[in-house]
């Protein structure tokens, strides 16, 4: 045991100077510029930025679905080579498989690891219990509401007991009420599992409510321009006045980048 390890938990996910360019007809786009991040065990990090700032690319690089041009991604000090079960991934639309039931989806990753059927079933039941979908184990995906789909997607990721849970705007497509409930639920699930979470969002209120830290990204080149800690006990309410203060600061901070992003999108040639 190294000294101080009890005070500062171990680093689970580390990005070192990650760079990524995209080549388009207009030329080279500098999407990510020397992005460095550290996520420790039990952390809840929100990655906040305007649309098109590269946060989705960064997410894909963390998940191992894309490779950086330069720089390193380390999981438990080991370099990442492709996707792996040490990182649970939840996509915006859930990306559940419609040809499988809820149980089939949650057990999919376990099947890939050749976990025997009995243990698979047990672990699946536990995960479904955690997201409160136990009763819906044998239901087809299209019969679930949007919120329930995201619960199932979370169960499918956490059942593999990942070291870090990567979530790419998972609640962006939900209506306001469902989104609010899912934010509460995610805080509960995070507290129960203790898994580190990297949560990508373009919604300031969501970032402030969920994160221990909010890493703010700038628009082109995508950089982490600051990290804002959020010291507030949980569960946090959406209308907490302290959170509102941080929110106001972040909205102002993001404004210029958001304008740049919109102008780029509208393409003033």
């Amino acid at each position: 045991m190294k000294s101080g390890s009890a005070l500062t938990p171990k680093v689970i996910l580390e990005l070192r100077q990650v760079c990524k360019d995209f080549h388009t007809r207009q030329g080279r786009l500098h999407v990510l510029d020397k992005v460095s991040l550290r996520v420790r065990r039990g952390d809840f990090l929100c990655l906040l930025g305007p649309a098109g700032c590269g946060k989705s690319t960064l997410f894909h690089i963390c998940a191992g679905l894309e490779e950086p041009d330069s720089g390193q991604v380390l999981i438990d000090s080991q370099p990442v080579a492709g996707p792996g079960p040490d990182r649970g991934v939840v996509f915006q639309d859930g990306a559940l498989f419609p040809w499988l039931t809820v149980r089939g989806n949650v057990e999919f990753g376990l099947t890939m690891q050749n976990v025997p059927a009995g243990e698979r079933r047990e672990r699946c039941d536990e995960a479904l219990e955690l997201v409160r979908l136990r009763k819906f184990a044998d239901v087809n995906i299209h019969q679930l509401s949007a919120g329930m789909r995201q619960r199932a997607a979370i169960a499918r990721a956490v059942v593999l007991q990942p070291k870090v849970l990567l979530m790419d705007e998972p609640f962006a497509a939900l209506d306001a009420q469902t989104r609010n409930i899912m934010q509460e639920e995610l805080q509960r699930i995070w507290a129960q599992t203790g898994t580190a979470v990297v949560f990508v969002t373009s919604n300031v209120s969501e970032a402030v409510r969920l994160g221990d830290r909010v890493a703010v990204m700038s628009f082109r080149p995508g950089r982490i321009k600051r990290e804002v800690p959020v010291h507030r006990s949980r569960p946090r309410l959406a209308d907490d006045p302290h959170l509102m203060e941080i929110r106001t600061f972040l909205v102002r901070d993001l404004k210029e980048d958001a304008h740049l992003a919109v102008e780029e999108e509208l393409g003033d040639a």
Partner: peptide, 9 residues
């Protein structure tokens, strides 16, 4: 689907 499946192994 392909991306999700890849992350699941």
């Amino acid at each position: 689907f392909v991306k999700a499946a890849a992350t699941l192994g």
